[in-house]
Amino acid sequence: MYYVAHRLFAAHDRALGALIAQHLATKVGPESVFLPFCDTDEAELVDPVKGRRLFELDRERLQALSGMIAVLHGPSVDDGVCMEMGYAAALNVPVVVMTTDFQTYSAEGDSSRWAFSDPLIETVAHRIIRVDRLGAPDPTDTRDRFSAFAARNQAQIDTAVAMSVEALLELAHSLPVSTTSHADKGAALIEPNPYTPHPAALLGTLQAAGHPCTIASRHQAPDPLAAARADWTTALQAEVLVADVSGPETPPGAALLIGAAAALHRRIAAYLPTATLTHAHGREPNWRNLMIQYAVGARLRDPQALAQWLAS
């Protein structure tokens, strides 16, 4: 099964996902492609806890993957897509990231650059397909300039889709099969929030409960890419993940690590003192993207709740 992971909340995002799925289906057959929202029948699904049911349906596919194309654009990448990427990567499934974004990122103006706002994304991606230029203008096109501009954008998208599908199928047939990581007994990882300091009490509480603890370091490291690789290795070996998911949406690195921990059946807690609930037709209110909310074992509103959760 090949999985197309993309932002779901606007029509143009869903249309892009459908375009990728169509192209992939011509290569592997429609029955071998899973397109969220479309194949979970989200618009028509009725369930007493619809968000959880959608999570379960998506997770069923994530557990039986041959490969994934993930679509990411801009500095605020989709947290649900990042969670799905982390899930697939932890199971050694090839992940191709497609972007038409022309931006790259760095810690300083003259320092090394990485592809997305969190260097952990390119750590877990097997291939990044970046098509950051408009298609070439057609000198024979006599339409108005807006139609011509739209055609150049569509050509850019078509190129990115074709390259991403080709890369995924190449990886799916060439990557060696490897086993998933075994956890170090009691080891815990704290994923701090890149925008606000994490509560020091989280570290003390984990240590007091007997958990050897590491704090992910890439956001403060001199070499963020090298630190991201170390954070990923530590995450795959940790029995416990405590991720600070504060902010308007879950930071991308936290979402990736939550997905990985969920795939490996590790204990996960999300630190989120305050939340803005999201609402969608027929769905219960969610305090985070449903892929993240239902992957975690607990939402911690204060550091004291961590001790209670560890003891449960």
Rank of each mutant, 00 (worst) to 15 (best):
T234E: 09
R266M: 00
P137H: 09
M98N: 14
S312A: 13
H173T: 15
S174C: 06
P176F: 02
T159P: 09
D118M: 07
L300F: 05
G17A: 07
L300H: 05
T142Y: 10
E44D: 13
P30C: 14
A136S: 13
R127G: 06
S32F: 02
R133Q: 14
T40Q: 00
L290Q: 08
A89S: 10
H12F: 00
A5Y: 01
A263E: 04
Q293K: 05
C213I: 12
D158S: 08
T180F: 05
T276W: 13
Q304A: 15
P176Y: 02
T276G: 15
A228I: 09
D13C: 10
C213K: 10
A307E: 06
V28E: 01
L202Q: 09
T250F: 05
Q207Y: 08
R266Q: 00
A183F: 00
V95H: 07
Y2T: 01
S181G: 03
T179A: 12
T205D: 09
A11D: 01
A155F: 05
T214C: 14
G86H: 01
E122L: 03
V165C: 13
Y294N: 04
H23M: 12
S174I: 08
T180V: 12
R52D: 03
A136M: 11
L91E: 11
A263M: 06
F55N: 02
V96Y: 03
D110Y: 12
T159N: 14
T142F: 10
Q156Y: 07
P192I: 08
R127P: 06
D231F: 05
